[in-house]
Amino acid sequence: MIQLEHVTKTYPKASRPSLDEVSVGIEKGEFVFFIGPSGSGKSTIIKLLLHEVTPNRGRVHVNGRDVTAMRSWKIPAFRRQIGCVFQDFRLLPNRTAYENVAFALEVIGKTKAVARRVVPEVLELVGLGGKEHRYPHELSGGEQQRVAVARAFVNRPLILLADEPTGNLDPDTSIEIMRLLDRINRTGTTVVMVTHDSNIVNQMRRRVIEIESGRIVRDQARGVYG
């Protein structure tokens, strides 16, 4: 599903590469944690998979397509196959939970009728049934992140990328979000999550890839934070 081959990424003006000759393969339906200290390069992986940055060397394959060689006008269609969740939720403050999720559908050309059918369903799935018409500021952090997950999942993407999704949440709420991601993973969606939350990694017992100074130092099938 995801293949990184000898990927090196050095940001302009950086003294050393964020990712240095990284090779890793992720199968369809896997749940993978990328862990490591701040600045280790783990967030760069998410950016590479989204084609927000391109590697200096090496190749990135997602769903059988070479992302590195992708023409820029093909990127939007490519991103529709990928859902994405961030630490800061990235919700639109002047739209309700329902409207936030519907917005993601409407801007890729889905009709309002489709949104009316699909959005309540996905909000129910993430456990926000009955709170569709609340604005982000009327929701707790955990609930806002659920809206973000609903928005990422509403297109039934093949891959869900999560960049420190529990970074702004308390431990109990974090565990609820993880349960949600686990459920999404069980529908067959590949989940790639970047985190430095050791509790969560230890509880989930999923594949753990540890990165330090841009290199993979550990790749364990049922790992702990270590």
């Binding site: 989204l50 006008w73 990127i75 939007p76 269609a77 490519f78 991103r79 529709r80 990928i82 994405c84 990235r90 639109l92 403050p93 917005f103 993601a104 801007v107 890729i108 050309g109 928005r151 297109n155």
Partner: peptide, 17 residues
Amino acid sequence: RREVAVMKLVGASNWFI
């Protein structure tokens, strides 16, 4: 900018943005 960021993220086409 927030709307544009979300639109890019979910794959809205460039002309639509």
